[in-house]
C-alpha cells in the first residue's frame, strides 16, 4: 500500500537524523565545556544555537519513530443458518457474501458467508 512506500521513503532519513543528532550533541557538549573552562560569552551563544538545532533534530526523530503505518488483512465470518455457529478465517480473495460455505460442523446445517471485512493493524515505521 502507499503507506509502505511513504514509510520506506521516510525510513531512509532515520540514520541521517540519528548521526546528525549525535554529532550536534557532541558539539554542544564541547561548547558547554569550553564555556565552563574559559568563561567566554561567544561559547554560550554558540551552544544555545547548537542546543536549538539538536532539539529540532530530536523532535524530527521522535516524530519519525512515532509514525505508524497500517497493515491490512482480510477476514471472513461464516455462520450456520440453523444453529448460529460462527467461524472466522482469513479471506484469500474470491469469497462472496451470502454464498454457501459448506456445512456446519455442529449440526450439519448450511453455512453462509456472513461477513467479509478488512482488518487494520498499526505497525511502527522501523518494525
Amino acid at each position: 500500500m502507499s503507506e509502505e512506500v511513504l514509510a520506506r521513503m521516510r525510513r531512509k532519513f532515520f540514520p541521517l537524523y540519528l548521526i546528525g543528532l549525535l554529532a550536534s550533541l557532541i558539539f554542544l557538549a564541547h561548547l558547554v565545556l569550553n564555556y565552563i573552562y574559559t568563561g567566554k560569552e561567544q561559547y554560550l551563544t554558540l551552544s544555545m544555537l547548537t542546543g536549538l538545532f539538536s532539539a529540532y533534530l530530536a523532535y524530527s526523530l521522535a516524530k519519525l519513530l512515532r509514525t505508524k503505518i497500517p497493515i491490512y488483512s482480510y477476514r471472513k465470518v461464516v455462520r450456520c443458518t440453523q444453529c448460529g455457529y460462527e467461524e472466522e478465517a482469513e479471506a484469500k480473495g474470491g469469497e462472496i457474501l451470502f454464498e454457501n460455505a459448506g456445512s456446519c460442523p455442529k449440526c450439519g446445517g448450511e453455512m453462509i458467508v456472513q461477513k467479509i471485512y478488512r482488518k487494520k493493524q498499526l505497525k511502527g515505521i522501523l518494525g
Binding site: M1, S2, Y74, A91, G93, G94, E95, I96, L97, I116
Partner: peptide, 24 residues
C-alpha cells in the same frame, strides 16, 4: 488528492481480490 489516491489504491486491492467494498 492523496486521500483520493489512497481510496483508488484500496479499490485496486478490493477489485483484484473480488471482495466487497464500502460502497457495497
Amino acid at each position: 488528492i492523496t486521500e483520493e489516491v489512497r481510496a483508488l489504491e484500496g479499490a485496486i486491492e478490493a477489485f483484484s481480490k473480488g471482495l466487497p467494498v464500502g460502497d457495497s
